[in-house]
Nucleic acid binder design. Structure first.
Lengths: 302, 302
DNA sequence: TTGTCTCCATATATTTTATATATGGCTTAT
DNA sequence: ATAAGCCATATATAAAATATATGGAGACAA
């Protein structure tokens, strides 16, 4: 009982004539006769009545015909689904986002755009830190990530630069520098720096430290926040200042003001991370949409 | 994309290990690897990720797996249905009944009993005259008939005697003979005989005529009724008398009384009619139930 | 009725296809 | 470092479906 047999059965039932059915099936009559007989004997039922001018369905055949059609239909659907998945028109994408990435307008924009373009694709989003994202990626719990380079194992994760986000200084409300149009890092020498821990975001951490160094000072490290957005409440509490990606200015939690940084200012790099060597069409599409969105969306009002 | 491939796919997905899956499938590992690779290339999707310690489903594979399971299930159901049909446990039976047969208690009784025994079988009933039943039988519009022999083409219809039903005389209400315990046919010589036309029921017709002849008289033929039960209103209208199968006494249409016939009395023979040479289990079962019901149900109160 | 035509069944040969066997390479575990 | 597990490849074998050739039974027309 193979797919082939279902097709034979249905075609013969439709033509009522083994010879013509064979022609329709692109084969000769004897093998078709043989296969149908074999099918009937294996099922233990006669599907057709052999008549002088052709064949006609028996009661059993009539009863089973819709069932056979259904199976053929489902098989066709299966194959179509597979092709859809192959072309990235259908499927599911598990997206991992580094801290505060959803606050960056171009990312949600790109995601919305992608779901419009590929309505057959379902998405799931998860926010985490860069090392955890890499691990999830490599253990196939995620399909694509937007992270803050560098990544722990360059060998297995392919990193595609996406954009460089400017950073802002976050000051507690009422801080003396609040009125300055832009602040040079050197003026922060005396303030404890609240920062996202290096092990959770080495790229961002190092960029900030490098900027301090370029400004000729060494920051006094204050408390650490387990998430990038978590630095804001600490600043609001007066525990120090922080350097954060520009997108965080969208967090309208009272008690904190954001300020431009005079050059040299650190940048928060964002990149796409995918498994090395892989690039299914679904992921490829998504990357294209992301890059496009980041190019056209040169947004981020200060 | 064959049934086999679906099974391979599902089994590998379940074991996560091609070698073990092959064992489970009763085959060796290389052909299984080969078939899955062929399947993947024909679908254009990778179903599995080859990993050092086995294989794991890709997103596409995960998405397609339930679909494959469904198809395998439906195929199994198909085969089970076919076997059910083969054994007469499932299916449909188109039953043709000669005129007034449903009035005979043992027939509906048998039908009810059969639907209890074989709940998977659906039944359809149709009442018609014997020649029409035979034709429907031979053109496969019916599967089994209960008719009044003889039948037109003995060659193609197999007739299995079922029972001999006594007949009654139907008199218009108030007829002088109404009070007699039983009536000899000879006393009906003067009464027009309302009868079911010979072309629609030769067996019954001839049996009545033979009884008249045996009684030494010739009936004066009155109006004909297109159905056996149709004779009753004609009798009630005073157009004559009629000889009817005993079961018709159940028709409580006013204006007619039924009376025993003194011997020699005609009998209305009932028989099962099926297509010559065929006897699917479903029909065989039904015949058995019918015969049993007619034996135990030696009913028919006068 | 006879001849012819249509259509299915059977028999044999051929080809295709799947499978088994043997082996190699890669990765993980001990 | 060595062994074990697992998948891939190559070749050979076996099984299967199919094509070709032919026969037979019934239907239809003359």
């Amino acid at each position: 009982m193979d797919i082939r047999h279902f097709r034979y059965f249905v075609t013969i039932a439709e033509t009522g004539n083994i010879t013509k059915a064979a022609e329709k099936l692109g084969m000769e009559q004897p093998p078709l006769s043989q296969q149908i007989r074999r099918l009937e004997s294996s099922l233990g039922v006669s599907l057709f009545r052999r008549q002088p001018r052709g064949v006609s369905l028996t009661e059993a055949g009539l009863a089973l015909l819709p069932h056979a059609r259904l199976i053929l239909d489902l098989r066709r659907q299966f194959i179509e689904d597979a092709h859809g998945l192959a072309q990235g028109k259908k499927g599911h994408l598990r997206i991992g986002l580094a801290g505060a990435v959803p606050l960056l307008p171009s990312i949600p924009f790109a995601i919305r755009q992608f779901s419009n373009i590929a309505p057959g694709v379902t998405l799931s989003l998860e926010e985490s830190n860069t090392p955890a994202l890499c691990e999830a990626l490599l253990s196939y719990r995620m399909d694509i990530t937007i992270l803050r380079p560098p990544v722990p194992d360059q060998a297995n994760v392919r990193v595609i630069p996406l954009l460089d986000e400017p950073t802002l200084i976050a000051l507690p409300k009422g801080h003396p520098f609040t009125n300055l149009p832009e602040i040079h890092l050197s003026r922060l020498a005396a303030e404890p720096l609240i920062i996202f821990p290096r092990e959770l975001g080495p790229g961002f951490f190092d960029a900030i430290l490098a900027a301090y160094r370029d400004a000729g000072i060494t920051p006094s490290l204050g408390q650490q926040a387990p998430q990038i957005a978590g630095t804001i409440p600490l600043v609001a509490a007066g525990l120090g200042v922080s350097i954060v990606p520009q997108s965080l200015h969208q967090l309208h939690t009272g008690g904190v003001t954001f300020h431009k940084i005079a050059r040299p200012a650190p940048h928060a790099a964002l990149a796409i991370g995918i498994r090395m060597g892989e690039q299914p069409p679904l992921i490829h599409h998504f990357i294209t949409v992301l890059q496009q969105a980041c190019k056209t969306h040169m947004e981020l009002p200060a």
